[in-house]
Amino acid sequence: MIRIFSILAGLFFSAALAWSLLLGVINVSKDGLPHTVEKAFHEHPKELHLASDGFFGKFDKQQLQRGFQVYSKVCASCHAIKHVAFRDLEALGYNEAEVKAIAAAQTVAGKDPLTGAIKDRPGLASDHFPPVVYAGTGNPPDLSLITKARHGGAAYVYSLLTGYEEQPAKLLKQFPDAKTPDGLHYNPYFANLNIAMPAPLTSEGQVTYSDGTKATVDQMAKDVSAFLVWTAEPKLEKRHQTGLWWIGFLLFATVLAYMSYRNIWAEKKGH
């Protein structure tokens, strides 16, 4: 009895699915597979190799400092990094005094612990980077987690920064309605191809690196991408190191456990 009910129920669901399928197939045969401008012209991020990649990956502190310079000079006028505290910058190789100076140069809204009043004061090492007030329209995202919040991570950031170009003529020929609207900028690495942010890195030497590295657009894009890997995952180095030790230990312990297992089962034939 239960099996008859079951067969009827199964046929009911299958029939409903077949009906959906039939109409779906008719639609596809009429319209074809979806063909959108994003599918045709969106590009996957370029390859980017950073010192923090791989099992043994560590941060290149010099590069992170350069990336921080690019962030401060260029990105920081619109984008905040609110999850990062000034004290965290010691991981980039700055000493205590330098961190204090970087913090003091910023104004943060501090709460007076006695009265509870909020008032502006110079930043302390223990403060986080303050929010950035953006004057234009739109909502520039916070960058602290950006390399974890986008497919492709650091390579995406790097590709986006170096990917601005004229809208290809081919695109307009195929999709005449897809012209980049005024005020937006064509970038094939951006999900819908048209991004509100104008190209931020435009000329060589836009940032003067304190370590003397030549500040090409490509170099600046790489450095700031590396910096944003750090802001998103400051514990990456410790994670890699801990992981190597731990997995090394596990391999050793597992081999021992396997030998012990073989021992115990030695007399039981067939295993």
Binding site: F55, R239, T242, G243, I247, L250, T254
Partner: peptide
């Protein structure tokens, strides 16, 4: 358990 922990830790740490 050792094999499982290795696979799980590979995801966790890397």
């Amino acid at each position: 358990i050792g094999l499982f922990m290795i696979a799980y830790s590979a995801f966790l740490f890397f």
